[in-house]
Simulated scan of single mutants.
Amino acid sequence: MAEARRRQAEAAGRRAERLAAWWLRLKGWRIVASRVRTPFGEVDLVARRGRMVAFVEVKHRQGARELDEAVDHHRLRRVAAAAEALMPRYVQEGQDARIDVILLAPGRLPRHLTHVWQGD
């Protein structure tokens, strides 16, 4: 039973990441990587638009209230550590980088939060 729930959650996460990638493409971003793992954690999407590279955390929940609680300081710190490890690979000289979050819930447009991490 637990294995089936884990597989369902994994499939839902992948669907959410695909939807977030399409949302970003519609906004002029190019997806350069997805599900990039580091020793510090995973970055769901790496996207580029012009001189900006965004390391994007994607969260899917069943309702808007749950989305408000989906991203906290601990999770953002993990994404920031992973993004920092990935910057040499994806951010070239003269480019800027930031960490974004895309929040998804059924029946709602994606909510794109930009530049969510300022560091400790």
Rank of each mutant, 00 (worst) to 15 (best):
A20C: 12
G13L: 07
R48N: 06
R61L: 11
A70E: 05
G107Y: 14
V71S: 00
A70F: 03
T114E: 13
L67D: 09
E57P: 05
W117C: 04
Q8G: 12
R49D: 08
R18I: 09
A11I: 14
W23N: 12
E66K: 12
V116H: 02
Q92T: 12
A105H: 13
W29C: 01
R35L: 11
E17L: 06
R48M: 05
R89Y: 06
Q95G: 10
V56L: 04
D44N: 08
L26N: 15
H60C: 03
A97D: 04
G50Q: 10
V79H: 06
R37A: 14
A20W: 05
Q95F: 13
A105V: 10
L67M: 11
H74L: 09
Q8N: 11
R48E: 11
V56W: 05
A105P: 08
I99Y: 04
P88R: 07
Q62V: 15
G107D: 09
H115N: 09
A85P: 02
W23S: 07
A70W: 04
E84W: 00
L76R: 04
L19S: 10
H60V: 06
A105I: 10
E69P: 00
A83F: 02
R49W: 02
A47Y: 03
R49V: 04
S34Y: 09
R14H: 07
D100H: 10
